[in-house]
Every structure is written in structure tokens, then in C-alpha cells.
């Protein structure tokens, strides 16, 4: 299980990395490498050139602006999980991060790397979709911003071009009212990829009426999906178990699960409902 040979470029800046990427056919970037390295070891990925982003200091960091939590792409997942700013501003992300891999993979794995990779079951892309984060894609011709909901084109596929580097992700900060979050996932073992994961963020007014709802599901479709119909049904409601049970069925229409070794499509579909109900009730508390 050894990778095929490749050339290695340790980029010292984003510009350096972009230039290297443009200069080499078949070059790809390595972020935390927690998914890429095994794929290379299994020779499922065989880039001719690897451009390493790990030494680019200004690709790491967490800060806030008025409307957004800015997370630079190379920020380690462990840093995001431990960040008080994240916990305060986008608590859903903190909840989700505790389900991502293990301590050791989070120490190396990055937030941007997970989003760029786009595993259908992964927790971070799910949060990005749920909150419709903004994703910056840098290239030598400049930086463009893509909404997370428009980012993916299938499992492990996105609109990111080969010459682009994901440089930053911005999560909208919900202001006002009471914010509740729920994150539920089922995996065979703790730390495994989710079979199904559900991320929910709700905003309530002083009367406990739901004024804003984000519900997204991962693992049950080629990419994480928003449950827009369900979100609409939550709007303007006081949320309790009876209500959720009544309206949760609409998620069926956005799911397109498949069978694999660990779960059947039918399992995913049914479990998605249970977990969605739990996540909404978790967020409603």
C-alpha cells in the first residue's frame, strides 16, 4: 500500500501554490491529507505532483466579521472544534466536529480539505450546506465565491476547477432570537463515516415560534441536501414531537440513498426520518 511516485512542492504562499498548480499537469493540492493519503496509498489517486498547502500560514485562522464566521481553509479540524468563537457564533459546527474522525485525524485534517473532498457522508460539508456557507475558490485569475448549496456536483465532485484552491469558508452567523442546534448521526462505530447525518439550526422568537430553519441531511444522497419543504413547514410553528412527526415525511422527496456494505438504501431512508426528528427536537430545546 505505497503511493505511486510523484513530485512534491512545498508551497510557501497561496500564490506559490496556485502557480505550482498551474504549472504542472495533473498536480493536486494536499491539505490535511487524511483522506487523500490513503487514496494515494491505495493508488486510487495518483497525482503526478503534490502541492502542499500545510506551510502557508495565512491559509489558517478563524475570525468573525459582522455577518460571517470566516474559517481559512487549512484550519485544522481540532482547532475548529476547540474554538470558542466557533462555539459561540456557529455552534452547529462545533457539534458536528465532535463526530469527525478521531482526535488524531482532527489534528491534521482541515476544514477546507473536508469540504473540498466532498464525501457524501461527511459532517463538515453537511454543515456548510445546512447553513449555506460561502466558499472561496482562488486561482491565478482571482477569487470567486460559490454558495455551498451550489458547490457539489455529485459524490466527491464539485465545481472547483483543477487550477483552483479552496481558500476560505464563511459560515453565516444567525443573529437575534434564540438559536437552537441539533446534530444527529448514525455510524457503525464511533468515529466512522456517518451512514446518515442530520444537521439542524433553528431560530426562535420570544414566543418560541420558529422564525428560521435550516435542516440538511448527509449520507442519503450523492451530496448533502437541504430539506426545504420541511424547513418551510417548521416556519411559524411551536415545535413539538407531534408536529415534527407530522411533517418529517417530506424529506423523502429530497433523498436518493443507495445501498452499500454498511447500510441499505431503505435503512438510510428510514433512519434519516428518525434522526431528523431527533435533531429538530434537539434544536428545539
Amino acid at each position: 500500500m505505497k503511493p505511486a511516485p510523484f513530485d512534491y512542492i512545498k508551497a510557501t504562499s497561496l500564490d506559490h501554490a496556485l502557480a505550482a498548480l498551474a504549472a504542472h499537469d495533473d498536480a493536486i493540492v494536499i491539505a490535511g491529507g487524511q483522506t487523500l493519503v490513503p487514496m494515494m496509498a491505495m493508488r486510487l489517486a495518483r497525482p503526478s505532483c503534490l502541492v502542499d498547502l500545510n506551510e502557508i500560514a495565512d491559509l489558517s485562522g478563524i475570525e468573525t466579521s459582522e455577518k460571517y464566521l470566516h474559517i481559512r481553509a487549512m484550519t485544522r479540524q481540532a482547532k475548529v472544534l476547540a474554538s470558542d468563537i466557533v462555539r459561540t457564533k456557529v455552534p452547529l459546527l462545533t457539534k458536528a466536529l465532535s463526530f469527525v474522525g478521531h482526535t488524531q485525524t482532527r489534528n491534521r485534517g482541515t476544514l477546507g480539505g473536508s469540504i473540498a473532498h466532498g464525501d457524501p457522508s461527511a459532517e463538515i460539508p453537511l454543515c456548510a450546506i445546512a447553513l449555506n456557507a460561502e466558499i472561496d475558490l482562488a486561482s491565478q485569475s482571482g477569487t470567486r465565491t460559490v454558495a455551498a448549496c451550489n458547490f457539489y456536483e455529485g459524490p466527491l465532485m464539485s465545481v472547483r476547477r483543477a487550477d483552483e484552491i479552496l481558500s476560505e469558508v464563511r459560515f453565516p452567523i444567525w443573529e437575534g432570537g434564540n438559536i437552537g442546534t441539533g446534530f444527529q448521526e448514525i455510524s457503525p462505530r464511533h468515529g466512522d463515516f456517518a451512514i446518515v447525518a442530520v444537521a439542524v439550526q433553528l431560530q426562535f422568537d420570544a414566543d418560541n415560534i420558529c422564525r428560521r430553519a435550516a435542516v440538511a441531511l448527509g449520507g442519503a444522497s450523492p451530496n448533502p441536501v437541504r430539506a426545504a419543504e420541511l424547513e418551510a413547514a417548521l416556519y411559524g410553528q411551536r415545535i413539538d414531537a407531534a408536529l415534527v412527526a407530522k411533517i418529517v415525511g417530506s424529506i423523502d422527496r429530497v433523498l436518493s440513498p443507495t445501498d452499500d456494505l454498511h447500510a441499505s438504501a431503505a435503512y438510510r431512508r428510514r433512519v434519516a426520518k428518525s434522526l431528523t426528528m431527533r435533531a429538530i427536537l434537539e434544536a428545539a430545546i
Binding site: 448514525i186 457503525p188 454498511h262 447500510a263 441499505s264 431503505a266 435503512y267 428510514r270 433512519v271
Partner: peptide
């Protein structure tokens, strides 16, 4: 007895 077996 995997969870999907039991659930099924």
C-alpha cells in the same frame, strides 16, 4: 447482527 439487520 449489524444495526441494519436488526432495523430491517
Amino acid at each position: 447482527m449489524r444495526m441494519m439487520d436488526i432495523e430491517a
